[in-house]
Structures are given as C-alpha cells and as structure tokens.
C-alpha cells in the first residue's frame, strides 16, 4: 500500500493531484473537477468540493466568498433509473391523450 492523502474518495483523487492541477494554473473548483475527475463519483462532491475550494482560495489568494462551487446537477442522492423511466412513461401517455 503506498502513501496517499485522498481528497476525493469516490474517484481516488489525491492531494498531490489537486496541488499539481492548481500548480499548472487551474484555479477554480470547476477546472479542478474537470482536470482531476474530483467530485464526479457516487457522492458527487459532498466530501471533496469544499477541500478543493479552500485549496483554490489559498493558492490564488482570493477571498473565500469569491470562490464558486461547481454546478449541482440532478440527482443529489443516488436513485434507481427506473423511477425516472416511470415518469417518462407518464409524459408519453399525456402526449398521446
């Protein structure tokens, strides 16, 4: 087992990965997400986004309140696709009526 400090557990993104990303010039949470894949796993950033934001703020010297989160997209919690399939079917029924 090698030594790693993990920022994003879902996607195995390490502190080194995030620091490297910031060092090559990406300074926003959205950019760090796109470059490292952080925040794209099952938890969708619930554990890593604030760490990424604070690391970005520290690196850029920007006041925290100017740092934006990445966009939150549905669903916020994991849900089986079948529940949406059922909603879709209702839409079709309505269209046919």
């Amino acid at each position: 087992m090698s030594s790693k400090a993990i920022v994003c557990r879902c996607e195995d993104v390490t502190l080194d990965d995030v620091e490297h990303t910031i060092a090559i010039g990406y300074r926003s949470v959205e950019e760090v997400k796109r470059y490292t894949g952080l925040g794209t796993g099952p938890c969708q950033g619930k554990e890593c986004m604030v760490h990424a934001a604070l690391l970005c703020a520290r690196a850029s010297g920007a006041p925290p309140e100017t740092i934006a989160p990445f966009t939150s997209r549905p669903p916020v919690a994991a849900a089986p696709l079948r529940i949406f399939a059922a909603a879709e079917k209702d839409d079709d029924d309505q269209a046919q009526r």
């Binding site: 986004m49 604030v50 925290p64 989160p69 997209r73």
Partner: peptide, 16 residues
C-alpha cells in the same frame, strides 16, 4: 442551489 438560492464559501461555516 438548484432552486436558485445563493451560497457563499464560509470556512467557519464548513463550506458553501
């Protein structure tokens, strides 16, 4: 946030 409510990064408040 999805509902349009503004958020702010507050380190003392734990995040956004």
């Amino acid at each position: 946030r999805q509902h349009g409510v503004p958020v702010e990064l507050r380190p003392q408040g734990g995040g956004f």
